[in-house]
């Protein structure tokens, strides 16, 4: 009876451990920052890989990528890191799967390549000093200028005509 209870507990423990394992494995690889404007650089880190086993291979897959990136530096917190420059990346979410130098998997992580800065979402037509106001101001200035020129020409002609008479 006691042995059965122990066996039962062990089975529950193994089952629970199996359930938790994928989550633990996911944390072995990190990408920082998790979002970057296109053209930015992210740092890929496999935290549990031993540098003595050799370089880590980061397999990057996403909207327009399927490439391997080799680790270049030892990470401050342990493991190995590589920098990834995202110029030319299509916008979207990418997955990074890391393999340690000894061939073991170090899990995976995701990062997102986003547009740069904010959105140009306005024409200025409702705002004081907006585009429409500027167009009206410029057109008004031009018309005023043309009118003034016409007036000067008219006055000159009248004076000239008066001088001849």
């Amino acid at each position: 009876m006691k042995a059965q209870a122990v066996l039962g507990s062990a089975a529950v423990g193994v089952g629970f451990g199996t359930l938790l394992l994928p989550a633990v494995a996911l944390a072995d690889t990190t990408v920082s920052p998790a979002t970057t404007p296109v053209g930015g650089t992210v740092v890929l880190t496999a935290t549990t890989c031993n540098p003595k086993d050799g370089d880590v291979i980061f397999h990057v897959t996403g909207p327009n990528r399927d490439q391997n990136v080799r680790s270049t530096t030892a990470a401050a917190g342990g493991g190995l890191s590589a920098e990834l420059f995202t110029a030319g990346f299509t916008l979207g979410t990418y997955t990074v799967a890391a393999t340690c130098g000894n061939g073991s998997s170090a899990g995976s992580a995701q990062f997102t390549v986003t547009p740069i800065g904010g959105a140009p979402a306005g024409g200025g037509g409702s705002s004081a000093g907006g585009t429409t106001a500027a167009v009206a101001f410029t057109a008004g200035g031009a018309l005023l200028g043309a009118g003034a020129t016409g007036l000067v020409v008219l006055l000159r002609r009248r004076r000239h005509a008066g001088a001849v008479a």
Binding site: G125, S127, A128, G130, A133, A136, F137, G141, L144
Partner: peptide, 12 residues
């Protein structure tokens, strides 16, 4: 022209 100038200064 004067009208448009005024509008440009105080539009919308």
């Amino acid at each position: 022209g004067t009208g448009l100038l005024a509008a440009g200064l105080n539009l919308a």
